[in-house]
Simulated scan of single mutants.
Amino acid sequence: MRMRVFMITLLMMATIMSGCGTGSTANDKKDGTNQPIVLKLGTKMPDESVEGKAFNLFADLVKEKSNGEIVVDVYPAELLGKGKTQIDNMLMGTQDMYAEGATYFDDFDSRVQVSSIPFLFRDFEHFQKYNTGELGQEVHEKIKSEGIRILNTERNFVRGPYRVLVSKKPVKSVEDLKGLKIRSFESEFYSQAYESVGANPTVVAWTETYLAMKQNLVDAATSPISLVWSMKFTEVAPYMTIIDEYPQDIVIAISEEKFSKLSKEHQDILIEAANEAGTKATQLLEQEVEEHLELMKEEHGIEIFEIDKKEWTEAFSDFHQKVEESGVFPKGYIDQIKSIE
């Protein structure tokens, strides 16, 4: 009887061990679990925006490319907090990823602020060459040393895709900026830049810009063209000038600590998906902008003007020299950027 009980016990143990073995996968052996790796991605934009759609596309690409081994959960519309808060979350380990403009990381390296200096970069291609070249890579490495890695190495996730000035009266030349009450965001460089050409910049919260123009607190505001329709700016400012004052892009960043714990295969998947999402997001954005322009023409009767880019760049060049002499950036940094071909 004892022998029989002993044999049954052995058989049960063998069955249990066998069952555990057949359920394992290559990923189980690598990560010690059959559960997917879940990454929390926080963003500022709502899901229905083009950028929001792109972030969800990024999540889909990661899941597809990893065969479900990595799942990116997207938390839109600042559900995880404001920009700086989400970056702090990443450093503390309560959040894995954040997607926004690189200027949000200026606490780690002040050089990212050059991206919002008006008329410093010739176009997006110039900006992209800066970001992917030696100067930009130095910034990437500095941010990485502080605990944050930028995944989209190609820096091809265009925001905008260009910037415009919406105004209550026509603005066709630099001369028209003199005395213009223009909305500014909280950037010393940005306000000083427009002061240097005679405008009167006033800091107004983005969400209050429509009301500020309606109540004549400001005469004009600059914006990525992709956001003008949703903010209804042309209802109160029917003149639009394509100024493309500076290029903008989105970076998808991840905690370096979290990234370093992933396998090389998984790391490569995240980078590949981020770059692919950037390409597709830009295509979606250009299509949507064309639709928005037609709507603004039909419903708000907007007039659109283009500028002489050379004239505006020359007008802001004195300000660029002041930035060069300010000591905020390394000596010769602004000139190095301008010399990029």
Rank of each mutant, 00 (worst) to 15 (best):
H266Q: 14
E288N: 06
E303M: 01
G179N: 04
M231V: 05
Y190N: 09
A237C: 15
A212E: 12
E276W: 06
A274M: 11
D268R: 01
F305H: 02
S255F: 02
Q283Y: 05
K310L: 14
A212Y: 08
A220I: 14
F316Q: 12
E272G: 01
E175P: 02
E306M: 03
S187K: 04
T313V: 11
L262W: 01
K264G: 00
E314M: 14
E208K: 15
S173A: 11
K297V: 11
S191R: 15
P170Q: 09
D244Q: 02
K214R: 15
T234F: 09
T222C: 13
F316T: 12
K181H: 03
S230Y: 03
S187C: 05
N200V: 05
E245W: 10
K258C: 02
Y194P: 04
F233V: 03
Q267L: 02
I250E: 06
L293K: 05
K309Y: 09
E272M: 03
T222R: 11
S230M: 07
S196W: 13
A237K: 14
T207R: 12
L293P: 02
F185N: 04
D249C: 00
E286R: 05
A221L: 11
F185R: 11
T209G: 05
H300V: 10
W229A: 00
S184C: 08
K214W: 13
T202G: 00
E256C: 00
T207Y: 06
V289R: 00
I304E: 07
E306R: 09
I243K: 05
F233Q: 05
N200G: 00
L177I: 08
L270M: 07
D176L: 11
D244L: 01
S317N: 14
V174E: 09
P170S: 10
D176K: 10
V171H: 08
